[in-house]
Simulated scan of single mutants.
Amino acid sequence: MEPLSIKGTFLFTPRIHGDKRGSFHEWFRLDTFQDRLGASLTLAQANASVSARGVLRGVHFADVPPGQAKYVTCVRGAILDVVVDLRVGSPTFGSWEGVRLDEDERRCLYIAEGLGHAFVALTDDTSVIYLCSEQYNPGREHGVHPLDPDLAIVWPADIEPALSEKDQAAPSLVEAKASGLLPDYQECMDYYARMGMKF
């Protein structure tokens, strides 16, 4: 697992075994998580989404504790998967990093609690699956507008983003911070330490 620039994110590129019949790969191994993160990924929920080209989902995050860590992969089509550091006080607060996840390389992205997550479908009929450390709790789930100019996420220029009503109504980063909605960096770091995570 390769760490990205935002603390608490890792990219995993599996070894794909292929022949004329097709392919096989391990996209999740508990021992890999325990070796790299110092703790296992608690599996509370598994999600799947199918999106038309241009559908943009996020930026979503949950209150910490307990937050909701995610382990994301794209099993059909392709996405630009984006992590946003929403932890107030973080050295990388407000920054983002994007990686392409697709059906060819089968890469997976781990996103720790307290970080924002969004993705845009680059192809029609794109299928994304992800493991979650906590069940969805609408009272603790929040969002920041993915087209907020202060975030300045560079979405593909040839795509017209299609957002849900909920994501269209999400506050800007400045508004979310001013309202006290965003996670606190030190609280997140303390939570990671209590969980035994090695970030």
Rank of each mutant, 00 (worst) to 15 (best):
I16E: 06
I153A: 06
H25F: 15
R106Q: 15
E175W: 03
V99W: 03
E187L: 13
D158R: 12
S172I: 01
L147R: 01
K7R: 13
L4T: 03
F61D: 05
M189L: 10
R15I: 14
E97S: 02
R15S: 14
K198S: 12
T73W: 11
P171E: 03
T73R: 15
A169F: 05
T32Y: 07
Q45E: 15
G114A: 06
G77R: 01
F10G: 08
A78I: 04
G38M: 01
P156Q: 02
M195C: 12
L37I: 09
V72D: 05
P3S: 08
A152Q: 01
T13Y: 04
F10S: 10
D167N: 02
D148T: 05
L173D: 01
E105R: 13
T123G: 03
A176F: 07
E103K: 02
V128P: 08
I159L: 15
E26R: 12
F24D: 04
E103V: 08
L122P: 05
D190G: 05
V84C: 07
C74V: 08
K7Q: 13
P146E: 06
D167A: 00
H25N: 12
E175A: 13
V99P: 01
V59R: 09
G143H: 04
K177S: 10
R87M: 09
F24W: 10
W96H: 13
D190R: 11
L181K: 14
A69K: 06
L86T: 08
L115K: 09
M189A: 10
T42L: 15
D150H: 10
H17K: 11
V88W: 07
M195D: 10
G143Q: 11
L80Y: 04
F119Y: 13
F10D: 11
D190I: 02
G38C: 00
E160C: 10
A44G: 14
M189G: 05
D35E: 15
G67F: 07
D102A: 09
H17T: 12
Q135L: 12
L151W: 07
